[in-house]
Design a protein around this nucleic acid. Structure first.
Length: 876
DNA sequence: ATCTTCACG
DNA sequence: ACGTACGTGAAGATA
């Protein structure tokens, strides 16, 4: 049993805070919603972060309280609650109910008293308590087990009052907060205090005397002063003020801690309320378990024998898979629809049917699919060569908007207005709870997906044509899917023995380093734990902590590198990290995913994932195999051709991103540099450092210039450059200034692209790929700056992706045309890796660079380098 | 599940 | 004053 965590919220003060912190918002029905929205945001955040087991929201019951008996002016002179806020309280109550959070109010008592009473009870029962409020009154309750969270500017930004924090801030104990109020009063509650005594004086007095009572006991010995006179004259008022400010912790509440257990919201009720109030952003972000929604009935025939008349010239086909690992999972069933008739074929009949097989292999029969690459790969394993795919929903959706996540047909369909399909989660359940439904339910689900695909084809086609992206989708991404599918299915051979050998060597080295580290540290600990490592380095060994993370000290490589001179243990830790990474990710990780039957790894290239248009690679990721350091680079020796006497042939674009930049900005200096085949970093150094001849550029200047070029591609910022070069921000800013002054075309381009993005809300690449930037006009500096850098980077990175994708299509056609056995296996952003019979190398040396360099014509030349060898390591 | 770290372009 | 370089995926620790 984990420890109980009790969250007590001050409903009124939080509602007030939210109301005044947010601009006026209204729902479609015209109800004000800002306080409700702020309250929701706060609840979401606090529940997420604290994961409480008990929760209660306390409200003030009414105007009069027991405090009015002793002081009728208590809380007098307050502004009336604005009606725009009053009308929101019923919604806030509904909201709390939808969260299944207990709320409570008690006549004659304030929310503070309810909270105080419950907090004390909880502490007695050894629970941890967090109190959340919009004002500081409750901080007096802070102790070892009670933390008081007070919202500051805004509603989700929180200041945490522990006794230590209060000590630090005021030099007082939590209980002395009451004495402080007794002396200084509180204008918002109309507590008088001692006139003329403010926060400063009150703190000074309490530091000297300890409490109001002690102060008055010793008042005779205080030397005569104006202040003393005031204190004496208002003694009774001071005592009364203190009493008013004291939270009563024995209120006669009739709820107990047992009544306030919290185990999560009523998701349906909450969603309904959010819809009513128009909290769209929250609905979109919510990851509530999807429950089956009412759907229009569909007609599906379950058929065991597919006959020719069931198959039309154009059909949506959906092969339902167990999960997304389509290279080694099972298929569950197949549905086909022509828009009027829908059939479902149980999987045991789907792959063995010759009529269906030849239809799938018939180029002239149009197939519309949700994910054609996955389907192609699955059918490939069944000996079926899929042809004639004319629509791919995931790709069409991705081109329309790359931020749309595309692994669930339901989510994708919903995005384009089609809702008659269930989410996988609703049908199968999530994670460990995954179950296979009965055949009828499965048939219905799979059929709905096929129907969705069929219905959405014209919608997406129109959308893409409207945005002038149909060409990109149809003639680039769709054919590429087929090529990627072939690459994945082909796979690349990995010599497990080589990996194991390297693993043994690594194990020995690691053991040695490990014991050295323990010796230097004086104890054993888990070197892989940043937390434990932080304690050793920054506490035990006393090294200076340069950077912090959310959770503690940063021990990242750039930090450790700066500490290398301070203690020899640091070097060993860096070595350990590097080798441990190699072993876990690249030796053990890779061995795990090698297929036993063919000794190959079959990665999956995600074609509808990145924001920029690049591919990504998973299970395993073959786009981040080590190369920069020799120790890691050796991993590449395990990647070999699938046949003896073959080689791996690698071709990569040189400086493709900077060439793309030159093309797009048409900066004269940059364009000329590439046309004349200059070393671009040297050229940049000349300009940045004001040097006229390349010979005068030192290697250090070139290194700096290279970093500046990276910065330009990433969306320049002085801070980023200063980090990468370990120089001051001012120096970095100077480099940037020099750069932009000498490449005015680049500056103009960058300014323009941001201006366009702000106007249109998106940026585009050479082939008209789009990325929307919703934050480009945000009032939040960070969000906006990020969007601006993205606006600069995406057209460059994305256009480079366009180019290599086009090259892949061209090379695939060319290899076929030339009748070569060479196979394209991998793409690593700016390089292509093939396996080839030795006798074809000569041809490849000629055609691969030619095709790649001419994939898309730019105003500067594209340049391709290549090499080959018996392993990937040797293809350098 | 989330954070931190580190591998690549 | 704000606090980041752009784009990814995987592993291990920790909650």
């Amino acid at each position: 049993m984990t420890k109980e965590k009790v969250l007590l919220l001050d409903g009124n003060s939080l509602a007030y805070r939210a109301f005044f912190a947010l601009p006026p918002l209204t729902s479609d029905q015209g109800v004000h919603t800002n306080a409700t929205f702020g309250f929701t945001m706060m609840l979401q955040k606090i529940v997420e972060e604290e994961k409480p087991t008990k929760m209660l929201v306390a409200f003030d019951a009414g105007k009069t309280t027991f405090r009015h008996d002793s002081y009728s002016e208590y809380k007098g002179g307050r502004q009336k609650t604005p009606p725009e806020l009053s009308e929101q309280f019923p919604y806030i109550r509904k909201l709390i109910d939808a969260y299944n959070i207990k709320r409570y109010e008690l006549p004659m008592y304030e929310a503070d008293d309810i909270i105080g009473t419950l907090a004390k009870q909880a502490v007695q029962d050894e629970m941890d308590v967090i109190i959340v409020s919009g004002d500081k009154d409750l901080t007096q309750l802070a102790d070892e087990h009670i933390t008081v969270y007070v919202t500051r500017k805004g509603i989700t930004d929180i200041e945490k009052y522990t006794p230590e924090h209060i000590e630090e801030k005021y030099g007082l104990t939590p209980y002395q907060i009451i004495d402080m109020k007794g002396l200084m009063g509180d204008s918002s509650d109309n507590i008088p205090g001692v006139p003329g005594v403010g926060e400063k004086t009150a703190i000074k007095l309490l530091k000297e005397y300890g409490s109001v009572e002690a102060l008055y006991e010793a008042i005779d010995s205080m030397k005569a002063s104006k202040m003393k006179e005031k204190l004496v004259a208002n003694e009774e008022q001071a005592h009364m003020s203190k009493k008013l400010a004291t939270i009563y912790t024995e209120a006669p509440i009739d709820i107990t801690l047992g009544d306030i257990s919290y185990s999560g919201p009523n998701e349906e009720e909450l969603l309904a309320l959010w819809r009513e109030l128009g909290f769209k952003s929250l609905i979109d972000k919510s990851d509530f378990t999807e429950t089956a929604t009412e759907q229009q009935a569909i007609e599906v025939e379950i058929v065991e024998e597919v006959t020719p008349h069931m198959l039309a010239d154009k059909m949506a086909v959906h092969v339902e898979l167990e999960n997304d690992h389509y290279h080694d999972c099972d298929a569950l069933g197949m549905a086909l629809t022509d828009g009027s008739r829908t059939i479902y074929v149980p999987i045991e009949h789907a792959f063995s049917n010759d009529i269906l097989k030849s239809w799938l292999e018939d180029e002239t029969k149009e197939k519309l699919m949700a994910d054609s690459k996955a389907t192609q790969a699955m059918l490939q394993r069944q000996g079926i060569e899929l042809k004639g795919v004319t629509f791919d929903l995931s790709l069409a959706g991705y081109i329309a908007d790359p931020s749309i996540s595309g692994d669930d047909v339901q989510a994708l369909a919903k995005e384009f207005g089609y809702t008659d399909v269930q989410s996988n989660e609703a049908i199968y359940g999530k994670g460990a709870k995954w179950t296979r439904p009965d055949e009828t339910e499965l048939a219905d689900h799979v059929a709905r997906k096929a129907i969705a695909v069929f219905m959405l084809e014209p919608v997406l086609e129109e959308k893409l044509r409207e945005n002038e992206q149909f060409e990109l989708y149809k003639n680039l991404e769709l054919p590429l899917a087929r090529i990627l599918g072939k690459m994945e299915s082909e796979g690349i051979t990995v010599r497990i023995e080589s990996l194991e050998e390297m693993g043994d060597e690594l194990a020995q080295k690691l053991e040695l380093i490990e014991s050295t580290i323990y010796e230097l540290a004086g104890e054993k600990f888990n070197i892989n734990s940043p937390k434990q490592l932080g304690v050793i380095l920054f506490e035990k060994l006393g090294l200076p902590a340069i950077k912090k993370t959310k959770t503690g000290y940063s021990t990242a490589a750039d930090v450790l590198e700066k500490l290398q001179s301070k203690h020899i243990i640091v070097k060993h830790i860096l070595d350990y990290r590097m080798l441990a990474k190699l072993r876990s990710t690249y030796i053990e990780g890779l061995i795990k995913v090698v297929h036993k039957d063919d000794s190959k790894v079959h990665t999956r290239f995600q074609q509808a994932l990145t924001a920029t248009g690049r591919l990504s690679s998973t299970d395993p990721n073959l786009q981040n195999i080590p190369i920069r350091l020799e120790e890691g680079r050796k991993i590449r020796k395990a990647f070999v051709p699938s046949k003896p006497e073959w080689v791996l042939f690698a071709a990569d674009y040189s400086q493709i991103e900077l060439r793309v930049l030159a093309h797009m900005c048409q900066d004269e200096v940059l364009v000329e540099a590439f046309r004349e085949g200059m070393d671009i970093h040297t050229r940049t150094a000349m300009n940045v450092f004001g040097i006229t001849s390349p010979e005068e550029v030192t290697s250090n200047m070139r290194r700096t210039a290279k970093a500046v070029n990276f910065g330009i591609v990433y969306g320049i910022s002085d801070y980023g450059l200063s980090q990468s070069l370990d120089i001051t921000r001012k120096e970095a800013a100077e480099f940037i200034e020099n750069y932009l002054a000498s490449f005015p075309g680049v500056k103009g381009y960058m300014d323009n692209i941001i201006k366009d993005a702000k106007k249109q809300g998106f940026v585009t690449t050479i082939l008209n790929r789009r990325r929307y930037l919703p934050d480009i006009n945000s009032s939040n500096f960070n969000l906006r700056s990020f969007a601006e850098r993205t606006a600069m980077n995406t057209p460059i990175q994305g256009s480079a992706a366009d180019i290599i994708k086009k090259a892949m299509i061209d090379i695939d056609a060319r290899l076929k045309e030339e009748g070569l056995q060479t196979k394209l296996l991998l793409q690593v952003h700016d390089e292509l890796i093939f396996e080839a019979p030795t006798e074809e190398v000569e041809i490849l040396e000629r055609i691969v660079p030619e095709v790649m360099e001419n994939a898309i014509e730019l105003i500067v030349p594209l340049k391709v380098d290549f090499s080959y060898g018996p392993t990937w390591y040797d293809a350098k």
